[in-house]
Nucleic acid binder design. Structure first.
Lengths: 178, 178
DNA sequence: CCAACCATGTAAGCTGTTACATGATTGA
DNA sequence: TCAATCATGTAACAGCTTACATGGTTGG
């Protein structure tokens, strides 16, 4: 179960698709960062099938082969992954994207966990810069670390902003995001 | 030549070290993001040696084996990598960290290229959100993409800030960064 | 003397990338 | 009819992770 597997589960849960359709999503959306391309997607789908997390169902009118859809095992695995506390910030956005919109509690929990993780790492870099270990570092090196710090802070800011967005949406009708 | 190889070259150029010393750097600095650990570092060093980019020199007083130092080929390869236009933003900070401090022109070029790349991708996400493709996306999905956009913008901001830092340093004596 | 650290490696296994192969269908 | 796109795969290769193995040295 790699991040790619979970991305596939998430996409299939949203809408049953063929392998080809899945590839297209990776090619045409910002999801493309999380890999793409036959040599990884088709094997990943096969392994998901072997694990009993997806099944192919032959769609009557569809001329392609079958569409993949989730099994209950797949649903369970995906749900668990989506709701675990945030640890890997790289995976986090992928998870956020696939959290069911209706599950406001899970979304709130994610944002809390994500903000905490980002903030924690940001202050980690700050203390690194302040204390021991940064002695002997050139100012250029410190500037490089500062990039990491700023990105982490931007992530934490985003979490707060996102929370506000959801709050607004819940209160009023709905305005366009951003 | 993976990013890890270049990181090793960069560290060795700064100061000839043993394999173990190199590992320690990855363990104790923010560089740790770029991998670590025996199974990758020792083989990478061997391959660099085979490529003629590093050599072991037995240090007289050192009780460990030899320290690695760069050959002219290694210096050349590193220099080329460091000065190429920014394409992969993930690798970029690694490159920035290893750019020689004296080479103000290369640093300026890097910052320009990095800012442009980040800005370009940020506006790419903006147009994705605005136009075709984002239709049918939930507001949650848009919020997820917005995270990417903000991080990219933070990177571009950082580049401008970094430029100012270097300017200040050049003008005055030197103040502590950040 | 024992724990911790110095120091270097190897082997198994998993993922992913690139590149290639194949064949059907559709639109200009 | 020719190019593009649908649709699915495989094989070779590179790289990293984990876990293990091995020994020397040093400090409490």
């Amino acid at each position: 179960m790699t991040p790619l597997s979970y991305a596939l589960l998430g996409l299939i849960r949203m809408l049953p698709r063929s392998g080809y359709a899945l590839r297209k999503v990776f090619k045409t959306t910002p999801l493309g960062n999380y890999s793409s391309s036959p040599g990884s997607i088709y094997p990943a789908l096969k392994s998901l099938e072997k694990l009993g997390m997806v099944q192919t169902a032959d769609a009557p009118e569809a001329r392609g082969k079958g569409l993949y859809h989730l099994t209950s095992a797949g649903e369970a695995a995906l749900g668990q992954w989506l709701r675990a506390p945030v640890d890997d910030l790289g995976e986090a956005m992928l998870r956020f994207a696939f959290l069911p919109e209706e599950d406001e509690a899970a979304i709130a929990a994610f944002l809390d966990s994500f903000e905490a993780a980002a903030q924690e790492r940001a202050t980690g870099l700050e203390t690194f810069l302040a204390g021991e270990g940064a002695t002997g570092m050139s100012s250029k090196h410190r500037i490089a670390v500062e990039h990491g710090r700023r990105n982490l802070e931007a992530s934490a800011d985003w979490a707060r902003w996102a929370r506000a967005q959801f709050r607004h949406e819940r209160e009023k009708g709905n305005e366009t995001a951003r």
